[in-house]
Design a protein around this nucleic acid. Structure first.
Length: 572
RNA sequence: CGGGGCGUGGCGCAGUCCGGUAGCGCGCCUGCUUUGGGAGCAGGAAGCCGGGGGUUCGAAUCCCUCCGCCCCGACCA
């Protein structure tokens, strides 16, 4: 394509609204323009890149036997009412009414519709397994769209759904997707981590998220480089750092001491010279209407999702101040488990075996010394702690690292929830009606692009992987008014096209500096510069990511470049 | 929804306190010069100062109100 005829509105300065790197560059490089909060127009370059990502996704999905279909983005409310998600999704679901007053919604995922199709058509186990997928816009009325294409209200999702007769079939479908996702993200040039994910308080089974480590990410992953252990923060199980000082010896019973005005662990610890690790942090919650006490080591944080899993419900909220006073006779800041009989007590596993700790006395401005779990109070132990830097891996004993990441994909063993809700049944080989078991799997295409930019950029712009860059190379004549250079550039352009290279020809009547800056901004992986050296029959071939540049003979540049592009891996 | 910030040519900003002819840099258009890292000179176009209402002789500026956008929080594939 000839740049002079394209619409690539680059900006010297980033619009003030953009904060994260990928957002700034997407705007500056003329990839996108924002229509409204969470809604973006994809201009030529973004669309080209997204199409390449889409092609990679399609190839890998087809390769595992998935069949591409397409369903409407608008769904009748009844389907969502049947699955229960009409209520569950609350304000996240875009809802609308048609002219007859019928309720509709915009699809955020398609479990209902896919299951509806299956329910209407699948009759026999012989028709299973099935893998159906599509690539289409999804809508979520996000509370707070942000960070450019990271969190938006309309995005492109590859979503697939599998139907199997039994657990083993689902496992196989899941494994196929796991493999396909790894190949997809590898081909897109991303550094990614598949992590075990939390599968929800209500009975989901296995689930993995595909995380792209990046500063702009909104999720956290825990990773142990030594053992290869990795999990989402919600799910990660690690060994806590040892307490700073050993627990005091002795078998003394709990003994109150005055802690005037000291409420936080930090304040009490400083007051009596003890480390935070010697304290018991006491939280009062309400689970399904009933009070619940959660205990943690003083320096640890509660993981809400782990707590939900431990108590078997996601209906958990912090207790109000008046409830705490009523139940325990003291205010937050002086709470503890000793003598508490009117609520369940759940203690984090890191408290098990500890002795002579410090806890609140349930009397304002007093704490207790010599509190020993199991002796001075009864509690159920469970892992309810959020993993953190400084923890060690259970298996290897090596340290773990906590990293920010972007979730680009999620695979999920759904079970029979939707099949049951929508009445999907087939006959098994014994002629008996059974409910197929489902899986669902998603990839956010814009997040693949965003992640690639976050991972591959410098202060001058993007440096996209060759597989998903809008063009593989750019041919830049330094001076188009110089007839020799212009002709040579034209020759190179045609030669590259003949070689099957996806090439952008910067034939604009601009000075060299402007063209170089633009090419670097928009992130084209290779550049062929046609300048003065053409007098010796040579051009320069430079690589965006490394900045390396080599002289190449004019007649060889096409084949050299093709080899270098192929060396970068399979293309879209 | 709670907290914070911002809406002024395409982009970045000043002007707003303290009312008095709307400015700067970049970009854009024309011409000449220049041409391997965002050129120089000259000339030019482009703004209901987010919308509505009010105060005033006079409002970008003061008051009321609505809208939009960004950030933090709660929430969430």
């Amino acid at each position: 394509m000839r740049w002079s005829r394209l619409f690539i509105p680059t900006l010297r300065e980033a619009p003030a609204d953009a904060e994260v790197v990928s957002h700034k560059f997407l705007l500056r490089a003329g990839y996108v323009r924002q229509l409204a909060a969470g809604f973006y127009c994809y201009l030529y370059l973004a669309k080209r890149s997204l199409l390449k990502i889409e092609r990679i996704v399609r190839e890998e999905m087809d390769a595992i036997g998935a069949q591409e279909i397409y369903t409407p983005e608008v769904h009748p409310a009844e389907l969502w009412q049947k699955s229960g998600r009409w209520e569950v999704m609350g304000d996240d679901l875009f809802r609308l009414k048609d002219r007859w007053g019928r309720s509709l919604c915009l699809g955020m995922t398609e479990e209902e519709v896919m299951t509806w199709i299956a329910q209407g058509e699948l009759r026999s186990y012989k028709q299973l397994p099935q893998i159906w997928y599509q690539i289409q816009p999804k809508f979520r009325d996000e509370l707070r769209p942000k960070s450019g294409l990271m969190r938006v209200r309309r995005f492109t999702m590859k979503d697939s759904y599998t139907f199997d007769i039994d657990r083993a079939g689902l496992d196989a479908a899941y494994d196929k997707h796991y493999g396909a996702y790894c190949r997809i993200f590898n081909r897109c040039g991303l550094e990614f981590l598949p992590v075990e994910a939390h599968s929800g308080a209500m009975g989901g089974s296995e689930s993995h998220e595909f995380m792209v480590p990046a500063e702009a990410g909104e999720d956290w992953v825990i990773e142990c480089a030594a053992s290869g252990y990795r999990a989402s923060l919600e799910k990660a199980v690690t060994r806590a750092r040892e307490p700073e000082t050993p627990d005091p010896e002795g078998t003394g019973s709990p003994e109150a001491f005055h802690t005037p005005g000291r409420k936080t662990i930090e304040e009490v610890a400083e007051f009596d010279g003890s480390p935070a690790t010697a304290h018991i942090k006491t939280l009062v919650l309400v689970a399904q209407g009933k009070p619940l006490m959660a205990l943690l080591r003083g320096d640890h944080s509660l993981s809400e999702t782990k707590l939900q899993t431990a108590v078997g419900t996601d209906d958990v909220r912090p207790a109000h101040a008046h409830e705490i006073g009523e139940w325990l006779g003291a205010a937050a800041g002086s709470l503890g488990p000793v003598g508490v009989a009117n609520m369940r007590i759940l203690a984090d596993a890191a408290l098990e075996g500890r002795r002579n700790m410090i806890a609140g006395a349930n009397k304002d401005n007093y704490h207790l010394r010599n509190v020993t779990p199991g002796r001075d109070f009864e509690a159920r132990f469970a892992d309810i702690r959020e993993a953190e830097d400084g923890d060690t891996d259970i298996a290897s004993g090596e340290p773990v690292r906590r990293r920010k990441a972007i979730e680009v994909g999620h695979i999920f063993k759904l079970g029979r929830k939707y099949a049951e809700a929508l009445g999907l049944r087939v006959l098994d080989k014994n002629g008996k009606e059974v409910t197929p078991i489902m899986g669902s799997y998603g990839i956010g295409l814009e997040r693949v692009l965003t992640g690639a930019i976050e991972q591959n950029h410098d202060d001058r712009g993007m440096a996209l992987p060759v597989s998903i860059a809008p063009f593989e190379t750019v041919v830049t004549p330094v001076n188009v008014k110089n007839e020799e250079q212009r002709k040579a550039a034209e020759t190179v352009y045609q030669a590259l096209r003949n070689e099957g290279v996806d090439v952008l020809y910067d034939d604009r009547l601009e000075r060299a500096g402007v063209k170089f800056k633009d090419a670097e901004l928009i992130g084209i992986p290779f550049r062929v510069t046609v300048g003065k050296r053409i007098a010796d029959g040579a051009v320069d071939l430079s690589e965006r990511a490394t900045g390396e540049s080599v002289g190449v003979k004019l007649e060889e540049v096409a084949s050299v470049l093709r080899r270098r592009i192929e060396a970068a891996g399979p293309r879209a």
